[in-house]
Design a protein around this nucleic acid. Structure first.
Ligand code: MN
Ligand code: MN
Ligand code: MN
Ligand code: MN
Lengths: 258, 258
DNA sequence: CAGCGATTTTAGCCTAACCTAAAAACTGTT
DNA sequence: AACAGTTTTTAGGTTAGGCTAAAATCGCTG
């Protein structure tokens, strides 16, 4: 009875990085995070450059340049030096799959494990790199095929979405909260506190001259709240002025945790 | 409306390793895996040396030496060069917490997400490093505070356990499967196939002269199965000869997934 | 108690990521 | 068209965690 008979060994998938013989997947967590970030940036700015990526990733610009080279070699992005970068089809597919995993994980964490609505984004951002698509499918099935994350963002990021930014509202408009695109914990905490969660019914009651402050009534709350630019651009709503609720939209509930 | 207003940024906890300014937790996945491995080895062999760890981790011995130095500095192990290594209290506490997370995650994966019983070990081994103790607590609560992983190993590894190796059985003994300590996928697949899962009732019916092959009847199966040394040492059972079932033991079910 | 095989450590190297400082390239203005 | 400011890239360095080859130590046997 020697140690060999015990078959006590770490799984290959958990052997330390750098072990020469098990480099099956060349896609590291870092690379995935870059691809996801680049794709997200593409959705909001016309051309994505080294600088924006550096800011997004919280690293110095030279680190981005190096990484872009690696990613271009892997066929995830096209990079024209000094010009900018764009996801290839392959890169986009990876980004979309990561987004899907991220949002499904958030559902599991909030709805099943009852972790706080405003605190799951960071954990999901980590775990999204370590589950297979099959596991994501199982989460989707177990949670009843949710269409959005707990903050309203779509599991399938290619789906059209007719929501508009809160800043589009005029006094008198009624709408309901569709999604929140800034998922920083402190930001979400604040929104939770004032009741601005997906599904909440709101009514714009007033607006300052240059549109910098919007006053809202939130369903079930007495006091109207004053909304600044920051919330106005990160919070998206559905309003009868433009459309009917698209299918799959989160229905109004007092608490998204239930 | 510049990019700064979007607040699109990767969470600090997901920034790439190596970014100079966010080294809060010096405990890497690698270090955790080593600590866990060393503790596990301590349970089955008298003294743990560089060689055993190298085998367990699937790396070369010099890599272990380097790592042991780092771990000793962190106060996780005591290392006497050329002699061997032992977990400190701090190291043991970390190992036990990792084991707890691992086994709770397996429960979630098998019982809630319905992933295959024999395929979750590797994934749990990865995820165990990325969830906090609070999240582990939430999993425990959501799953009804399970006492063991789906393979029968205790969530609280300090708990005494009166099970014995299958090799202790004599012809005529009846027992039930308590736990399986070798969690390699192929090994578990085989056991699942022949019905040797935690809770299964068995009866030893015969034994070859030197004890190398044990013949068993498994509840609900017609054909007896022949068991070799490998299974005999990795499969532990409870038998009326020694004790009553300790509290918290998995009760017999036909399928541990249900 | 000397010698030899096995184990462990040291020495020196590699890769993925990061960093800072300096050079190069782009862009908009005179 | 030249220059200045900004952005990006190159150059050179660090760290964690691997690796191989060589040196050191251990433990056993003659
Ligand atoms: Mn992520
Ligand atoms: Mn979300
Ligand atoms: Mn692990
Ligand atoms: Mn298990």
């Amino acid at each position: 009875m020697t140690i060999r008979d015990i078959h006590l060994r770490v799984p290959d998938s958990c052997r330390p990085k750098g072990a020469r013989d098990h480099e099956k997947s060349p896609l590291t967590e870092s690379i995935e995070e870059y691809v996801e970030g680049i794709w997200r940036l593409e959705q909001v700015i016309p051309t994505v450059g080294t600088g924006e990526i550096a800011q997004y990733m919280g690293v110095a610009p030279p680190s981005v340049t190096t990484m872009l080279k690696r990613m271009a070699e892997l066929g995830l992005v096209e990079h024209i030096p000094y010009q900018g970068v764009r996801c290839t089809e392959k890169g986009e597919a990876l980004a979309l799959e990561l987004l899907r995993k991220h949002r499904l994980i958030e559902r599991l964490l909030v709805d099943f494990l009852e972790l706080p609505w405003d605190g799951v984004h960071d954990l999901a951002c980590k775990l999204e790199h370590y589950i297979s698509s099959d596991v994501a499918d199982r989460i989707a099935a177990a949670m009843g095929n949710p269409q959005t994350c707990p903050h309203g963002n779509p599991v399938d990021a290619t789906r059209d979405d007719l929501s508009v930014q809160l800043s589009a509202l005029e006094p008198g408009d009624r709408a309901w909260v569709a999604k929140i695109t800034d998922e920083r914990e402190e930001f979400l905490s604040y929104l939770y506190q004032i009741g601005l969660i997906p599904g909440a019914q709101i009514e714009a009651v007033g607006r300052t001259p240059f549109g910098d402050v919007l006053t809202l009534k939130v369903e079930g709350r007495e006091e109207p709240v004053a909304i600044g630019r920051e919330v106005m651009t990160s919070l998206w709503v559905h309003t009868g002025r433009f459309d009917r609720a698209p299918e799959g939209v989160v229905q109004a509930t007092a608490d998204p945790r239930t």
